[in-house]
Amino acid sequence: MQRVNMIMAESPGLITICLLGYLLSAECTVFLDHENANKILNRPKRYNSGKLEEFVQGNLERECMEEKCSFEEAREVFENTERTTEFWKQYVDGDQCESNPCLNGGSCKDDINSYECWCPFGFEGKNCELDVTCNIKNGRCEQFCKNSADNKVVCSCTEGYRLAENQKSCEPAVPFPCGRVSVSQTSKLTRAETVFPDVDYVNSTEAETILDNITQSTQSFNDFTRVVGGEDAKPGQFPWQVVLNGKVDAFCGGSIVNEKWIVTAAHCVETGVKITVVAGEHNIEETEHTEQKRNVIRIIPHHNYNAAINKYNHDIALLELDEPLVLNSYVTPICIADKEYTNIFLKFGSGYVSGWGRVFHKGRSALVLQYLRVPLVDRATCLRSTKFTIYNNMFCAGFHEGGRDSCQGDSGGPHVTEVEGTSFLTGIISWGEECAMKGKYGIYTKVSRYVNWIKEKTKLT
C-alpha cells in the first residue's frame, strides 16, 4: 500500500490518463441519441435557420407576430419608411378606419389613436360632414345658397324668414311668412316636400332668348283662358290664391305678392273693366268669414305684352289694390325667389296649380277651390304637342294621358313649387288646347323671366 501511494504521488498524470480511459469505455446513459432527441424537440425550422439574422431580410411573422416588435424591426421587413409607417399605425392600436367614419364618399386613412378623412370636392370637416359648395344638395341650405369668396357655403332665406341657429334652416321672422300653410287642420295635408338634388348652379339658368321682337298675326285659340281631375282644397291650404270678379264672377285667378299687390295673367284683364279681388276665398257660393274683398285701382301688364300681336306672350300683369290686405292664416303671400332659384325650383319637376275653373272641358265651374299636382314636361315634348308657338318664356306641365289639367277660369292662378315646406311661385296658368285632352298640356308663363320686374313694381313704400 505504501508503494502504491508513492507511485500516485510521483505520477499524477498517469492516474488522470487511467481515469479518462475508464470513462470513455463506459456506456453513456444520461444523453439520448440524435434521433430520439429530435422526437422530443420537434420544432419547425425557421426561415433563416442556421444563418445569422443580421444578414437576412426581415420576416413579418418572425419579427412582429411571434413577439412584439419595434418600429426598427418592422422597418427591416418593409425596407421602406412609408410602408412601415402605414403598417405601424394599425399594428400599434388597430384600424381606426374600420367603422368607416368618413361621410359623403370620403376616404379614410388610419393613424395612431386617430384617423384622417380625405374629402371629395365640396366637403370638409373631420368626417367630411361639412358642405362647402352650393353645387351639392344646395349646400344643405333649406332655401338659398351662395358661395363666399373663400368658396364656403353661405345660406340665406327669402323675405319674412331668418336663418336658424344651425345656419342652414329657415324659420319665420314674421307672423305670416310667405308660402307657408298655417291653418292647423290643413298642415297635415301639406304636399310632399321637395329635397334639393345635386345641381350645376353655374349652368342652372337656361341660355334662352326671349323672342321679344317676333311679330306674329293673332292666333285663334280655343278655350285658351284655361282644375280638371283635381281635388277639393281645404280652407287655408292655398292662402296665396285669390279669385278675380268682373263682368262675371271667378273669371280668373291670381296670387298675393304682398298686402297691396296681386300677380295674374295679362290676358285676364281689360282696361276700363272694374275688377274686384277676393282673398281668403274657399267656396265661392258661401260666406265663410275668411274672405277679404278689395278693388283694383291700377293694372300693370308687362311692358312687352301686346294682345294685338299675341294674347299669351309675356302673359303676366300686376294688380294694385285700393287697401292693403290683412295677412292671416287664410290670406298669405306666395314666396318669389330670384331668377336663378325660381328656375331651379321649376326644374324640380312638379308643381301645384289651383283655381275655381271648370271641372271638365266646357263644363261647370268649381264651387270649392280645386288643386292638382302636375309634372313638368320637357321642352321637346311640349313643342311636338301643339302647332302653336311655345315661346321661351312659357313652359308645359300636365299629363300625356289627359284627364287632369287646369281649365277655363283658372287662368292667372299660381303654379307653385314647394321647397322644404315653403311654396314659391314658378308659373302662372296661361293657356292650353281644350282641357285635359290626351297628348295636350297646360301652358304656363315662366315666372323666372319676370321676377325682377315683379319685385321692382310691387315694392311697398
Rank of each mutant, 00 (worst) to 15 (best):
T386Y: 09
S70P: 09
L52Q: 11
F221V: 05
N135C: 13
S350M: 11
P177K: 00
N245D: 06
L163R: 03
Q185R: 06
E76T: 15
K126F: 10
E193K: 06
K39W: 04
D405M: 13
R180V: 04
E401D: 09
C435D: 05
E66S: 11
P172N: 06
G432N: 06
G349V: 02
L163D: 00
N48L: 11
E193V: 10
V227F: 11
R298N: 13
I300K: 02
C407V: 08
I429R: 14
E456H: 04
F399H: 11
Q57A: 14
P12Y: 14
R46K: 10
R75L: 06
K188V: 09
S350A: 13
G94V: 06
G355S: 06
G280M: 02
G21I: 11
I262K: 00
S448M: 02
T445M: 05
V228G: 04
K293Y: 12
I284D: 09
A37K: 15
A9N: 08
N283F: 09
L319K: 00
V228A: 12
K109M: 08
A37L: 10
Y441W: 06
R373E: 04
E66Q: 09
L19K: 01
R404V: 08
C435N: 06
E54V: 03
A37S: 09
V374H: 02
E79K: 13
F395I: 02
L189T: 07
L103F: 03
A380V: 12
P12L: 14
F238C: 04
K274F: 07
R83P: 12
C155K: 00
L189G: 08
N38K: 07
D95L: 13
E10D: 12
S430R: 03
E281N: 04
S448P: 02
H267I: 02
V4Q: 05
F238A: 08
F144M: 04
T85Q: 07
L327M: 14
E418S: 13
K438L: 12
Y371T: 13
E456P: 02
Y371P: 07
L130P: 15
G105Y: 09
S169R: 10
T290D: 04
E35P: 11
Y161H: 03
Y47H: 13
E98I: 09
P177L: 01
R226E: 07
H282R: 06
K45N: 09
Q370V: 03
T458E: 01
L319M: 13
N151G: 08
Q219D: 04
P324V: 04
T422P: 01
Q90S: 14
G439E: 13
D223K: 04
D111A: 07
E418N: 15
L369S: 15
L189N: 12
L460S: 06
I17A: 03
F238G: 02
R162I: 07
Y444S: 01
R140H: 06
G21D: 01
V202P: 12
S217Y: 06
E129Q: 11
A37N: 15
L130M: 10
S217G: 06
K347G: 09
T389K: 09
R43E: 11
R449D: 15
Q237H: 11
D378I: 03
T85K: 07
F87D: 15
M394V: 05
S99R: 13
N328E: 01
G179Q: 01
S148M: 09
F345K: 01
I316M: 03
G413R: 08
I275F: 11
H302A: 03
A317R: 00
L383N: 14
P120K: 04
C252F: 00
K347P: 01
R294C: 00
S406P: 12
L367W: 13
K455A: 12
F78P: 15
V242A: 04
G230K: 07
L41S: 13
L372T: 14
V195A: 09
C396S: 01
G409S: 13
S11M: 14
C134V: 02
C141N: 00
E401L: 12
Y22T: 05
I336P: 00
K274T: 11
H289Y: 03
E270P: 10
L376F: 12
H400T: 14
N203Y: 08
A308F: 05
T342V: 03
S107H: 09
L52D: 13
L24V: 05
H267Y: 02
E67C: 06
W88A: 15
I256G: 00
K362N: 15
T186D: 12
N306Q: 09
A250L: 04
T209W: 08
K438Y: 13
I336H: 01
G280V: 01
D95A: 14
L24P: 01
E401G: 05
P12S: 10
V248D: 07
Y391T: 06
R180N: 01
E259I: 06
T332R: 14
G253Y: 05
S365G: 04
V183N: 07
W118M: 11
V263Q: 00
C102Q: 01
A366S: 03
N127I: 11
E159A: 07
T417Y: 02
R43Q: 13
E208H: 10
G363M: 13
E259K: 11
G125E: 03
N213R: 06
T389D: 15
W261A: 01
D33F: 02
L244H: 02
C117I: 01
E434G: 14
K293G: 03
V359Y: 09
L189I: 12
F424H: 02
S204A: 04
Q167H: 07
Q96K: 12
N166E: 03
P177Q: 01
L372Q: 14
I428D: 01
H415Q: 00
T29L: 12
D223E: 07
D249V: 08
T381Y: 09
F176W: 08
G106N: 03
F144I: 03
Y201I: 06
K293E: 09
N258W: 01
G349E: 08
N127P: 03
L318D: 00
I390P: 14
T461I: 06
N295F: 06
E116Y: 05
D131N: 14
E208W: 06
F360A: 07
D150K: 08
C178T: 00
L24W: 06
I7D: 03
V153S: 11
V153T: 14
K152W: 06
R298Q: 05
D131V: 05
R384I: 11
E320C: 02
S411G: 11
N138C: 03
S169D: 05
A26S: 09
D249C: 03
F121W: 07
S107P: 08
W356N: 04
A173H: 05
L60F: 13
V154L: 11
K459P: 05
V154M: 08
K126Y: 06
V419H: 14
K146Q: 11
F78N: 15
L460T: 05
M437E: 15
F424T: 01
L425F: 02
G398T: 05
S217L: 04
M8G: 09
Y305N: 02
I334K: 00
G13H: 12
A164Q: 05
S99G: 08
V451A: 14
E73I: 10
I284H: 06
L32W: 09
N283D: 11
G106D: 03
G427V: 01
Y341R: 12
P44K: 02
Q96I: 14
Y312N: 08
G253V: 13
L163K: 03
A250Q: 09
H361N: 12
P414I: 14
K440T: 14
K347W: 05
R298W: 02
Y371A: 13
L189P: 06
S99N: 14
L318Y: 00
N80E: 11
E27V: 02
A380G: 14
V242E: 00
L211I: 09
E79D: 12
K39E: 09
G246T: 08
V326Y: 13
R404A: 07
Q408C: 12
F87W: 10
N222R: 05
G357V: 15
V183Y: 10
H303L: 05
R180C: 03
G179K: 00
S148K: 07
N258H: 03
T215V: 09
S217V: 09
E73D: 15
T287A: 10
K387C: 05
N36E: 08
E434W: 14
E270C: 05
G412V: 07
S448L: 02
S448Y: 03
Y201V: 10
N304M: 09
N127S: 09
Y115L: 05
C117Q: 02
G230W: 13
N295Y: 07
H361E: 09
T190A: 09
Y391F: 09
S354N: 09
S217I: 11
N48S: 12
G432E: 13
G105D: 07
Y444T: 01
Y305F: 09
S49Y: 08
L325F: 11
